[in-house]
């Protein structure tokens, strides 16, 4: 029997809406994952600290504030610094197509656009996450 995947769901930056993130968190739970919800207004540092402490397989970030090109690469860089490159890193929110592809070139496994079905996110995680411990 394989263990459940552990997924951190977090919201970097200053936007005040976490309904979308909570819906995604609940849908991943319903697909058998253990979801660590970290709440609003996280700094990249706090997100990476939490990921390390919780030994997660996946980090899913939701960002609506427009500061994604600044904050998301910072998360990626901090993960590399801590030796956490094995963590599957995904993001979603209001991110223009070209910037989404740019982030995918810079270490994000997938950047989901607005209106993505939550089931697609769960599918993507199931197919791409690696259980390392």
């Amino acid at each position: 029997m394989s263990r459940p995947l552990r997924v951190l769901v977090g919201k970097p930056g200053l936007d005040g809406h976490d309904r979308g993130a909570k819906v995604v968190a609940a849908s991943l739970r319903d697909r058998g994952m253990e979801v660590i919800y970290t709440g609003l207004h996280r700094t990249p540092q706090q997100i990476v600290d939490a990921a390390e402490q919780e030994d997660v397989d996946v980090i899913g970030l939701s960002i609506l504030s427009g500061s994604h090109m600044e904050l998301l690469p910072q998360v990626r860089a901090l993960l590399a610094e801590r030796g956490l490159d094995h963590v599957l890193l995904i993001a979603g929110g209001i991110i223009p197509e070209d910037e989404a592809r740019e982030l995918e070139r810079r270490g994000y496994a997938r950047v989901f656009g607005p209106g993505t079905a939550t089931g697609d996110i769960a599918d993507f995680i199931e197919h791409n996450a690696r259980r390392t411990s």
Partner: peptide
């Protein structure tokens, strides 16, 4: 699965 929210 589980939703672990105590960190918040």
């Amino acid at each position: 699965g589980a939703l672990l929210g105590d960190r918040v």
